[in-house]
Nucleic acid binder design. Structure first.
Length: 259
DNA sequence: ATGCCTCCCCGAGGGAGA
């Protein structure tokens, strides 16, 4: 089963890219972030006409996540548990039918800049809630994939110019420590497992020629429970869509699970 | 790079992103 995560930076601005990507790359299961759309305005037909089931968790203007699946989805949870007052749509999870109990979680972790400040505090609090949810989901001892835009640069090797990010919310010690605590629950960073070499990135800023200069960072991740990691065949980054017309600033990241 | 683009809101120009 081929599973991809893709921050598309606006689903309505990215309909051509999304259609082409689904036609050419044909994921069995895909999670999208930053759809920037309410559920009613999501281009549902574009997805369903290509044989996908669709579950969305959107909001007006910002954020928003969606799960696309060839197999039916069940037991959908919208919103990261732990704070009923949080209005930001950054989390959706579901069980994928016929895939050995696979639970897929789609997350758009807060950016957190400027740091320090209230946005950084929100990021760290969100990561605490993520920790609690991940710990609870782990107890099922089933294949579990936490995929999305983490807005975390885990290591210096995950940035072309790590020195430029030292004060940034994506790379600050508190952020990286929270990410390490998540891994310590027993998760594997799928891409790092299969692509240990430096220089693998998933985001390049629109500005200053970051893409042609390969001035990137690796912030889109798929974390696997042991039961999922046991079935990992491969993991890779698909860079071609970054060269398409009107691209997202992120590219898809893939895993292939023997499910 | 505390923003050189691009998205959203809407119908101007500001907030947000990373």
């Amino acid at each position: 089963m081929k599973i991809a995560t893709f921050n598309i930076n606006g689903v309505k601005a990215r309909t051509d890219v999304l259609a082409r990507w689904l036609d050419e790359s044909a994921p069995d299961l895909a999670v999208l972030q930053e759809i920037k759309s309410v559920d009613e305005n999501f281009p549902r037909a574009l997805i369903e006409d290509r044989g996908y089931h669709l579950e969305t968790h959107g909001q007006k203007g910002f954020n928003g996540v969606a799960i696309l699946s060839k197999a039916p989805l069940s037991d959908v949870v919208r919103g990261l548990p732990g704070d009923d007052e949080d209005p930001q749509a950054r989390w959706i999870e579901a069980t994928v039918e016929g895939a050995g109990g696979l639970r897929i979680c789609d997350l758009y972790l807060p950016n957190g800049n400027p740091a320090p400040g209230p946005k950084f505090e929100y990021k760290l609090a969100w990561m605490e809630r993520l920790q609690a949810r991940a710990k609870a989901l782990m107890k099922a001892e089933k294949p579990l994939v936490l995929a999305g835009d983490y807005n975390v640069i885990p290591q210096p090797a995950d940035a072309a110019r790590p020195e430029a990010w030292t004060q940034d919310a994506l790379f600050r010690p508190e952020t990286r420590a929270a990410f390490r605590r998540l891994l310590a629950l027993g998760f594997s960073d799928a891409l790092r497992l299969r692509r240990p070499e430096p220089g693998i990135y998933t985001f390049w800023d629109y500005q200053a020629g970051a893409w042609p200069r390969n001035d990137g960072i690796r912030i889109d991740h798929l974390l696997l429970s042991p039961q999922a990691a046991d079935r990992l065949r491969d993991a890779w980054v698909e860079t071609a869509p970054r060269d398409w017309e009107k691209p997202s600033d992120h590219t898809p990241v893939w895993i292939d699970l023997d499910l």
